[in-house]
Simulated assay, not measured.
Amino acid sequence: MALLGSVPALRRTTRSTGRRRGEKRLGRLALGAVSLGCGIWTTHFIAMIGFSVDGTGVSYDAARTLLRLVVAIAVVACGVFLVG
Rank of each mutant, 00 (worst) to 15 (best):
A77I: 11
F45P: 03
G39Y: 08
G18M: 00
T14M: 11
M48E: 12
L4Q: 06
A72K: 01
A9S: 01
A9L: 01
Y60A: 07
V34H: 06
I46W: 10
A74T: 13
L82I: 07
V83L: 11
V71N: 08
V76W: 02
D61Q: 12
R21W: 04
G79H: 07
S16L: 10
C38N: 02
D54N: 11
T17E: 12
R19S: 10
R19C: 05
V58G: 03
R11N: 07
G79L: 06
G5R: 00
T17S: 14
M48P: 05
T42C: 15
R15P: 00
G84Y: 10
L69F: 12
R28W: 15
V76L: 10
C78M: 04
L31H: 04
M48A: 13
M1W: 01
L36Q: 09
G55L: 12
V34K: 01
A33H: 07
L69E: 07
A63C: 06
L31I: 01
W41L: 08
A63K: 08
L69R: 07
Y60Q: 06
T13D: 07
G57A: 15
S35M: 10
T14W: 06
S35Q: 12
I46G: 05
G18W: 00
A77K: 09
C38R: 00
G18S: 09
R12K: 06
A30Q: 05
L29G: 03
R21K: 09
G55S: 12
L4G: 02
M1P: 04
V7Q: 04
Y60P: 01
G18T: 06
D54Y: 14
K24R: 15
R64I: 12
P8C: 04
R25P: 00
T14A: 13
P8F: 10
R12Y: 14
G84K: 05
H44L: 09
G79T: 05
E23S: 08
C78S: 00
T43G: 12
R64S: 12
V34F: 13
R15V: 03
